[in-house]
């Protein structure tokens, strides 16, 4: 297939980005989804809508406003400069921040659905048996919501691997920092290097198919075992 060294760098960068983003999203998304699933607050509607916004906004639009916000005159840029991080655009961590916004709904929504499906009854039963709130969350709610976590992890990871518009806007195409696989393929196409584009795209396609197949296969097995 003839992958160049630049292609390999892009592949490893993409995997690193998707892993970091997925872990961060699970850490941030779990409490958020838990709150959204159980709250009766008036803020549930607005917060839920805010989380879902990236589903509707075109990625390049989101990316452009992230670029403006991350600039020295934007709110994100002023915040990151104030805490000594400099500006975030054109850096790996800038992409992480952008991707967290962009992939948020793909993690929060499956988790929220899973928590809602668990319902309050198992938790109330656990409470009558003397389990504290943290105990109830970690030993009752989390295991029952496991299918939701599998879906959230896969979707969050896959969506970040396939991300393009946001990265294009805030990346700056720096090898090893911000030049991810999707941008590399785009560059090959734009440079009329269609053979290289085909090779890399086929690899991306094969990888995505394999990951999804493994997860959906294992989910069915896990699901039948748990009586879902």
């Amino acid at each position: 297939m003839g992958l160049s060294e630049a292609d390999l760098t892009a592949i490893f960068l993409t995997l690193r980005l998707a892993s970091v983003v997925t872990i961060l999203l699970l850490l941030l998304g779990t409490p958020l989804a838990w709150w959204l699933a159980r709250t009766r607050s008036l803020l549930k509607g607005p917060i839920g809508a805010l989380v879902a916004l990236p589903l509707v906004l075109p990625p390049t639009v989101l990316g452009f406003y992230l670029l403006v916000a991350m600039g020295p005159n934007g709110p994100l840029g002023q915040f990151s400069s104030a805490v000594g991080l400099g500006t975030l655009a054109f850096s790996f961590w800038g992409l992480v921040v952008g991707s967290v916004f962009y992939s948020m709904p793909f993690v929060v929504q499956p988790l929220q659905n899973a928590f809602e499906a668990v319902g309050s009854r198992p938790l109330e039963v656990a409470a009558t048996l003397g389990a504290g709130p943290l105990d109830r969350f970690f030993t009752v709610a989390l295991p029952l919501a496991r299918p939701g976590f599998v879906t959230a992890t896969v979707l969050g990871f896959a969506h970040t691997v396939g991300e393009f518009g946001v990265v294009l806007m805030i990346g700056g195409n720096i090898p090893g920092q911000t030049r991810v696989v999707s941008v590399q393929i785009y560059d090959h196409v734009e440079a009329l290097a269609y053979d290289q584009a085909h090779g890399l795209a086929a690899l991306l396609l094969g990888f995505s198919f394999l990951v999804l197949m493994l997860v959906y296969g294992s989910r069915r097995r896990a699901g039948t075992g748990m009586g879902w």
């Binding site: 452009f64 670029l67 600039g71 020295p72 655009a89 054109f90 294009l168 806007m169 700056g172 720096i174």
Partner: peptide, 20 residues
């Protein structure tokens, strides 16, 4: 110190937004 836009319009965006 180089950052690359996919085209000249994007290079302009980077500078206009003061990111570069």
């Amino acid at each position: 110190k180089l950052v690359q836009g996919e085209n000249i319009a994007q290079a302009y965006q980077f500078i206009a937004s003061a990111n570069a």
